[in-house]
Design a binder for these strands. Structure first.
Lengths: 228, 228
DNA sequence: ATCTCTGGTGATCGCTCGATAAACTGAGCC
DNA sequence: GGCTCAGTTTATCGAGCGATCACCAGAGAT
């Protein structure tokens, strides 16, 4: 229809952002793109998402790899902002309440398509930052949880948890993590009530920890007796 | 040195395989390549692994995508060859023994770098075959396990497990699965004794199932009491 | 010995990728 | 107004990608 008269060049969109704004817009949109396409996603597709041309990227990042590193940093540091030290270590509250609340807010932070996909893609690349994150989960979350559990059960506080304890905590943690993978990566139907899933997982973890603590110094435990 | 005289062209390697052999060699090496590089791995790199030239691939597969589909098929069907029906459903043996053995052979089948990486890469692509596999784990493994557990506990056998039961089983299964991810994807240190990890996970799963079964018809359960 | 059939190669096409260099443009300052 | 400088675009490069086609070569049948 009135297409013939060029109405002031419709692509006079919103160009000319400040350098800082443009730069962080690149990182944000790159996170979205790479979450969907993997890190093989193209710089042209990224530019299209911003409504700019592809070479503009190189005004803000020396190479695509530098952009990717920034995406890593942003995504991996995101869940750390919730401040779990005080959540886990506040001994004025029952440990079960602390654990429940911690896992609710922690999974609120990481259970979304964007975070989980970036995490898995970068994990498959075997990057240092992924090793660092896994080590941090071990030291800052699982070890802390075990320490609080030991304290709560009246056991001696040891500097490092035993390998068996740690594995127990990992299986528990992994079970919860896998809930997010099933929901946001596999897009499989899951129990909608995340809080109840956490509550149930906590029940069996804490019961398992108690059982392990009871057979105190034993390295090897007998299997539990099953009804029937 | 004696480089000047062409000594019968050293690349007279081992060419000229039978069509079937060459085809399956393509699939095998493609599985290795894609496991490491992702499905973005190049056809030239693949040919190099076989010691042939790149166009030869297209004598055996119409396109790279068809090759990839064959890789899927091979990888996804691999763990099914262990025949878990008889392992899980043989009621002449104690359920705990059955579960222990099943998870040992199942994880023997899938806990390796090749399988896990292909599985995760294809999972990230959101393919139908991945949905199919997850559904199969649910129907053929978890549902069966829950049915056997119910039978063992003397509970009424219901056609489908409750959502809460299923979630319990998923968290347990996911916890074990994540052990493989930690070991072969993250390459993080894990408890070396896989059988003990399974045994411990089984302990807490079965204890959790019993607890859930005790509070029979209740949809919502009270959290367990913690010492202290 | 020659023919034939098939596994395998060499050359190349069209496309997309990350990256570079030069030209353009518009808001703020004098 | 005209200058300046930073944000943006246009044009393009070289490399690598999947895919195609004509050709080659060697084992087995005749």
């Amino acid at each position: 229809m009135n297409r013939k008269t060029p109405v002031k060049r419709a692509r006079a969109k919103q160009k000319r952002l400040s350098a800082d704004d443009r730069r962080s817009e690149f990182v944000t949109k790159a996170t979205e793109l790479f979450a969907e396409e993997g890190f093989g996603g193209g710089t042209r597709a990224l530019a299209r998402k911003l409504g700019v041309t592809q070479p503009l990227l190189y005004r803000y990042f020396p190479s695509k790899d530098d952009l990717i590193k920034e995406v890593y940093r942003k995504v991996y540091l995101e869940p750390l902002e919730i401040g779990w030290e005080k959540l886990l270590s506040d001994r004025s509250r029952p440990i079960r309440v602390r654990l429940q609340e911690f896992y609710e807010v922690y999974t609120d932070a990481i259970f979304n398509r964007r975070w989980l996909r970036i995490y898995l893609y970068s994990g498959l690349k075997g990057l240092d930052i992924n090793r660092w994150y896994v080590g941090m989960v071990k030291d800052k979350i699982l070890t802390r949880i075990l320490r609080e559990c030991r304290h709560d059960a009246g056991l001696a506080t040891q500097s490092r948890p035993s390998a068996a304890e740690l594995e127990l905590a990992w299986v528990f943690h992994g079970g919860i993590f896998y809930y997010g993978v099933r929901k946001y990566i596999y897009e499989a139907p899951v129990l909608d009530d995340k809080a109840q899933m956490i509550s149930d997982a906590l029940d069996i973890f804490l019961a398992g920890f108690e059982r392990m603590a009871e057979s105190a110094t034993d390295r090897r435990r007998a299997p539990i007796k099953i009804a029937g």
